[in-house]
């Protein structure tokens, strides 16, 4: 297992489409990102911009109508898209785990938490565990996820728990199998803000304690700001800008990122920001060039024709926009 420059995960030029009745939805194009060992990255973007599709590609749980049209996903030096089903199952059991957006649909509704978490613990162990060992482990994971009365939780059905508790159960389950990388797909979006804050704190402490890498997906800038080391900004299935969290917030480059940051309502602001005019383009027939060109206030002729390349504007801060095209390139 060779790791290139300490990158635990590297996604290169991922392209995914969906076959639907109306035609082909060209969702992901040229999506590239990487995660270093122990690094926390955030992927932000509007709903429907392909964040979840990227994550499902990594877990290899895309729906049957998805078409993988290109790209490579290297995990610990191996292309995840090429390895056997058995190797993939091994990774899912021992190395990578994903927390889903909506905790109320991510747990099987007709089984108690006990049997669900027992099975996960059982199969993510290297050796055969006895029943009491499985039970002890499950209890310890629930405790690590800061769930009070773990015995009662094990004996409850999902519908008997609150949203926050369900998300904690999901986190506890992922503790069993995430030893290297945790993918958290908007883990707090469907919860109250106070609960969301608790969940984010919990995730942060777990990630730091276990030295995990994490990909945190969110549509809210504030959520990722205090959490991650680097941020990727996604728009309509493409990555438009990425760099260290600090420089993304202090010096946003891409017009989309700037508008996105400006459109966050401020507590002391005089009025509610206007947001970004226009809508995300249809994936059935996306713009030939830059996908933001239909809404961009700085649009040039070239933006409609050509997809922009990625330019390094500052140290480690990259942007995919024709405005930053260097002379001669």
């Amino acid at each position: 297992m060779v790791m290139e420059n300490g990158k635990i995960l590297e996604v290169k030029d991922l392209a995914v489409s969906y076959k639907v009745y109306e035609g082909i939805l060209k969702v992901l194009r040229n999506v590239s990102f990487y995660v270093l060992k122990g690094e926390k990255i955030g992927i932000i973007g509007e709903s429907g911009c392909g964040k979840t599709t990227s994550m499902k590609s990594i877990m290899r749980i895309l729906p049957t109508n998805a078409l993988l049209e290109g790209g490579e996903i290297y995990y610990k030096g191996k292309n995840i898209l090429k390895i056997s089903k058995k190797e993939m199952t091994y990774l899912r059991r021992h190395s990578i785990s994903m927390i889903f957006q909506d905790p109320s649909t991510a747990l099987n509704p007709v089984f108690k938490i006990g049997p669900q978490i027992y099975d996960i613990v059982k199969y993510s162990s290297d050796r055969r565990l006895t029943k009491s060992e499985i039970h002890e482990l499950a209890i310890s994971y629930l405790k690590q996820a800061a769930l009070p009365e773990p015995e009662r939780i094990l004996d409850s059905y999902p519908f008997q728990l609150s949203g926050g508790m369900k998300q904690r159960v999901n986190i506890a389950m992922s503790l069993a199998s995430a030893n290297d990388l945790l993918i958290a797909d908007e883990p707090g979006t469907s919860l109250d803000v106070t609960i969301e804050d608790q969940i984010m704190r919990l995730l942060k402490s777990i990630v730091e304690e276990k030295h995990l890498s994490i990909i945190l997906i969110s549509h809210a800038l504030g959520t990722v700001r205090g959490f991650v080391d680097r941020i990727y900004v996604m728009y309509a299935g493409t990555i438009v800008e990425y760099g260290p969290t600090k420089s993304i917030f202090s010096n946003p480059l891409h017009p989309y990122t700037r508008l996105l940051i400006e459109s966050v309502p401020k507590l002391m602001g005089k009025k509610i920001p206007e947001g970004i005019p226009g809508v995300v383009p249809s994936y059935l027939n996306p713009p030939l060039g830059c996908r933001f060109s239909t809404r961009c206030p700085f649009k040039m002729d070239i933006c409609e024709r050509e997809m922009p390349q990625v330019y390094e504007a500052e140290d480690g801060h990259f942007v995919a926009c024709h405005l930053f095209r260097k002379e001669g390139s």
Partner: peptide
């Protein structure tokens, strides 16, 4: 089989 809970079970590596 396309629900989140099944995807979650797959992504935990259950047989």
């Amino acid at each position: 089989k396309n629900s989140d809970f099944t995807l979650s079970e797959i992504s935990h590596g259950l047989p």
